[in-house]
Nucleic acid binder design. Structure first.
Lengths: 193, 193
DNA sequence: GCCCTATTTGAATGATCGTTCAAGAACTTT
DNA sequence: AAAGTTCTTGAACGATCATTCAAATAGGGC
């Protein structure tokens, strides 16, 4: 046996950047070759086809974002504080100039959901897990006494997720720091009320 | 002179449906021929190229949605009530099964913004006008005494728009009527507080 | 009713797309 | 060190894409 020469995670991260730049359809195999450094044949050998590379890149993206999310809550005894910092982090991300300010999950879902059930299902599950993780933090914050029980954690989690979706889209046309920060602040206030 | 034989508005509405179904890139000229009933040559004669047809379809879409928005406020002396009904209407739209539940403006912006400055500019202006119209209704509602002056109309307009963006995206993975209606209700409560 | 001009038609064009495959290169095992 | 197996390479393939254009068609002005 001879093992592949390339770093699979690095290739997937390069691919997700390429998909974020141009979208799935407009990203050609030539673009992917340039971004990943892999020749077409190697891509087909490792991921079956272009769509397989997208699916793998999406899963890697989800893994990375999930790890990133968890990092906001280790070494912290306040879940509410962690959620607030996480939201601020997302705002900073929206203000970034490169194309990684978008979320690959929602971007791919928007582009392919109506045409590809497998992509739709995969992304839906991942977004569901993300929402579930957020809901869990709200439940913890309620247990910690930082947020009241007047509304359920599920209710707050949904609203928070909706707000992040909205912030990301809003940032496309209004990338002004003050506006976004103010919106996020209001969102966090409302979701904790 | 000989005038064109087709109904331009009908063609543009058919084109926007096609673009909503598959997205701009994946909608082929064959799809557009089938959707509009126009042969390629006629499309190029009337709209210059595929991109020109998209730009025209976007403008028509914006016109239609703008008219629709205004209809919620004629024969009504309560701007606040109009906004609430409008939001309920958007929720109903999100629950629709066909692909017209998406917004062509945000869909096209997501797909093409990073690659086409003219599309980006056109859509940004139209979304700005929409936000401005909403802000104006909040200002009226404040004048009418239905909403307090504790926050500016601009602030409320931005938040409302952000919430609608969020609702639309959220509906992609959670098309459950009760959940969406509850989210919209909470949004309206928060934006009016 | 006839000519002129603009529109409609649909086949043809060149480019680019995702994908395949046979040959060459390199690592592992013996 | 040689053989065997797997990965890599990049040219070639058919399909499909947006676009063009010359011929056919049909309305408006006289």
């Amino acid at each position: 046996m001879r093992s592949a020469e390339f770093d699979k995670v690095a290739v997937l991260r390069a691919a997700m950047q390429a998909f974020l730049n141009k979208g799935y359809t407009k990203t050609s195999m030539q673009d992917l070759k340039q971004a990943t450094g892999l020749h077409p044949g190697s891509i087909y050998c490792a991921f079956e086809n272009k769509r397989g590379l997208l699916l793998a890149a999406i899963s890697q993206y989800n893994q990375d974002r999930s790890d990133e999310f968890c990092a906001f809550f280790i070494n912290s005894d306040s879940s509410k504080q962690g959620l607030e910092t996480y939201l601020e982090h997302i705002v900073e991300e929206c203000l970034s100039c490169d194309s990684s300010k978008a979320c690959l999950l929602t971007k791919a879902l928007n582009e392919l959901a109506e045409q590809d059930d497998e992509v739709q299902t995969l992304i839906s599950q991942q977004l569901e897990a993300w929402q579930s993780a957020i809901t869990d933090k709200f439940a913890r914050a309620q247990n910690e006494g930082d947020i009241s029980d007047s509304r359920s954690a599920e209710c707050r989690g949904r609203y928070f997720v909706m707000g992040i979706y909205g912030l990301r889209t809003f940032a496309n046309t209004h990338p002004e720091p003050d506006t976004l920060k103010k919106l996020a602040k209001q969102l966090f206030k409302d979701v904790c009320a």
